[in-house]
Each structure stands twice: as structure tokens, then as C-alpha cells.
């Protein structure tokens, strides 16, 4: 498998502060890579840089190569051609990611028309097919609905339909199930798993929840304050974490193994935040 996304020494700064201190990561074709870290660790900034969605004030250096094409310094029009086609993104909050004034079907069709130039009739057919493929009941009705008329889980399914309709090579998921409750989360994760497989798309999956990452990904990168502290195949990282921060994350994710009434382990039991800090 060749490398689809290759990031080298990526640094991102805002004002005087640097949010990302030179990270390297590689996503192979069809691979599933998770990025785990707490709020402010730089995981979302990495995703936004890859999508060309950083604000103009951001300073970016290093290299982001997607399918051999350099994305650092790429123009807005250059990114617009890639977004929704070669690379797409699924955001945390589907209510803000969808346009509240536009019917769901039209929003999904827009992605198709922009990149495939499909005529309206054909686009509509394909949209209904896609909405049905992501398990939305009564796709005809859903396509005529506005986002606020759908439940959180249905909105996230619509976003997945939108992200996958052009069969992108890479799908970036930024906390795609964090706003959902556990049962809906389980269903959306399973759907995502199936759809990524069906499309053969690679995935960069960002989450603060190691358990969720372990459901979807084969490899994991652990980020802390703008650096990658550990990376590897998920089995290896879970079984034999090298960094104490990773060990702490694993322990906090395993609350089902703690006897009720006993204090839950916290990161500080494993790591003081200094030792092994890169």
C-alpha cells in the first residue's frame, strides 16, 4: 500500500504561539489512522490544515502531501477542487456543519454537482441512493427535509452521505460521534466502518475517546500539546504503551474494569506531564 497522505515536520502557529510543533504522519491508501489527544493537543488543527480550512492568520510550514500533491501553500481554488472530491470531512456538530436553510437533499446534491457536473435529475437519483445507503429511513422524505427536522443521528448520517458520495480517497472525521448518545454513536460508528470499507477510502479519525478510536482504526497516534508522543498499530499501543501518557489514556478508557466505589484512575496516576516530554 502506497502512502496517500504524508505529513512531514508540520508546524502551525497562531500569533506568537505555536499550536503544532513539527509532526510527521503517514496514512496509507485505504488505511485507518486515529489521532487521540485532549482538547488543545493539536489534533483538529492538523485536520483543518489538511482540508485547507485554517484561518488566513495561521502560519504553516512543513509539508502535507496528498496523493503526491503538495497542499502547503495551495490556493483556495486549489483546495476547493480537492474538498468533497479527493478528501472530505465529517465534523462533530452536524447541526452547524449543515446549512440550516437548505433542504438536505440539495446539500448532498451540491457536492455531486460541483465535482461531477451531474445533471439535476441524475444527481437527485444518486442522492436518494446515497441517503438510503447510509441507513436513513424514507430517503425521499429525508432529502426534502431541513436539517432541524432530523435527529442528531440522522443528521450525522446525512453528513456521512455527503462526505462519501464522491468516493473520496481520504475521509477526515473530527469527533464525529462526540455529540451523540451511546446507542446512536454505536450505530453511526458501525455505519462509518461499513461505508469506508465499501468505498475503500482511507480515514483519519480524530477523537478524545480511545475506545471509539479502537472501534474504527488500525493505527493510532497519541498527541499531546502539539507533538506526537507515541504511534503504532493499535494492538501494539494498547498492549504495550511506551509513553506514560498513553498508559494513562488507556486506564481512563477502561472504567468498566474498575470496581464501583473505588476511585477511577486518572492520567496523573501515570504521568506528571513532564517525564518523557518531547
Amino acid at each position: 500500500m502506497g502512502a496517500l497522505l504524508r505529513i512531514r515536520d508540520l508546524r502551525i502557529g497562531f500569533g506568537r504561539a505555536e499550536a503544532l510543533h513539527g509532526i510527521d504522519l503517514t496514512v496509507g491508501e485505504g488505511a485507518r489512522v486515529g489521532i487521540i489527544g485532549e482538547s488543545g493537543s493539536g489534533k483538529s488543527v492538523t485536520a483543518l490544515a489538511t482540508m485547507g480550512l485554517l484561518p488566513d492568520t495561521a502560519r504553516v510550514s512543513g509539508s502535507i502531501e496528498l496523493g503526491g500533491r503538495q497542499l502547503v501553500g495551495l490556493s483556495d481554488t486549489g483546495f476547493a477542487r480537492l474538498r468533497g472530491d479527493v478528501v472530505s470531512m465529517i465534523f462533530q456538530e452536524p447541526m452547524t456543519a449543515l446549512d440550516p436553510t437548505m433542504r438536505v437533499g440539495r446539500q448532498v446534491a451540491e457536492v455531486l454537482r460541483l465535482h461531477q457536473g451531474a445533471p439535476a435529475g441524475r444527481a437527485r437519483e444518486r442522492v436518494i441512493e446515497m441517503l438510503s445507503q447510509v441507513g436513513l429511513p424514507d430517503p425521499e422524505r429525508i432529502s426534502m427535509s431541513f436539517p432541524h427536522q432530523l435527529s442528531g443521528g440522522q443528521r450525522q448520517r446525512a453528513l456521512i452521505a455527503m462526505a462519501l458520495i464522491n468516493q473520496p480517497e481520504l475521509v477526515i472525521c473530527d469527533e464525529p460521534t462526540t455529540a451523540l448518545d451511546v446507542t446512536v454513536q454505536a450505530r453511526v460508528l458501525r455505519l462509518l466502518d461499513e461505508q469506508l470499507d465499501a468505498a475503500g477510502a482511507a480515514c483519519l479519525f480524530i477523537s478524545h475517546d480511545l475506545a471509539v478510536v479502537s472501534q474504527v482504526c488500525d493505527e493510532v497516534l497519541v498527541m499531546y500539546r502539539g507533538t506526537i508522543v507515541e504511534s503504532g498499530p493499535i494492538a501494539q499501543v494498547l498492549e504495550n504503551p511506551q509513553h506514560p501518557y498513553t498508559a494513562g489514556l488507556i486506564a481512563t478508557a477502561r472504567i468498566d474494569q474498575i470496581e464501583p466505589g473505588r476511585p477511577l484512575p486518572v492520567i496523573e496516576n501515570f504521568w506528571d506531564g513532564k517525564e518523557g516530554r518531547p
Binding site: 451511546v182 454513536q185 454505536a186 450505530r187 460508528l189 458501525r190 466502518d193 461499513e194 470499507d197 475517546d209 480511545l210 475506545a211 471509539v212 479502537s214 472501534q215 474504527v216 482504526c217 488500525d218 493499535i234 494492538a235 494498547l238 488507556i250 478508557a253 477502561r254 468498566d256
Partner: peptide, 16 residues
């Protein structure tokens, strides 16, 4: 409730 698990080739189809 999501649990830590290692995906294997055979479990890929039955994520949950």
C-alpha cells in the same frame, strides 16, 4: 458503551 478493542480482519464486519 464503546470499549477498547483491537479490530481484527474477522471483526471488521461486526464492529458493534
Amino acid at each position: 458503551v464503546p470499549k477498547l478493542r483491537v479490530r481484527t480482519a474477522s471483526s471488521r464486519r461486526t464492529a458493534t
